[in-house]
Amino acid sequence: MTIVEKVRTICPFCGTGCGMELNVFQGKVVGVTPDWSSPVSEGALCVKGQFGTGFIHSPDRLTTPLVRQNGELQEASWEEATTLIAEAFGKIKERYGGAGFALWSSSRSTNESNFMLEKFAHAVLGTNNVDNCSRT
């Protein structure tokens, strides 16, 4: 009897890109089984992929935007946070142009998020200063 739901996905812990199934019970990831059909890993995983899911439901996860007020990061809504960014970036763009920005993307985030950051940099902020953490 299978009591967990299995969702086929990719391990987030290194460039090997092993296939895995997240085992989900009542909305929580409880474990991992390998994706035997993955041509990359053919059923193998390493300690991080197999056992490293603890962080997903960590109580330390950020659950809401934070905005710095009087020197402290305070909880805010998406609307407040994004409005603040839009205004501040607007001012920087007016004064410095695209050269006033840098965007550092993540080698851990998805292709789609990386593409969006690239588009945002070029099309909205007018800068080509986009880099990622490939050199670390």
Binding site: G15, S105, S107, R108, L117, E118, V130, D131
Partner: peptide, 15 residues
């Protein structure tokens, strides 16, 4: 090294 360092570069996240 990292899981999507290839993809980040592919998507243009390189200056």
């Amino acid at each position: 090294g990292q899981n999507n360092v290839q993809g980040a570069g592919d998507m243009g996240a390189l200056p």
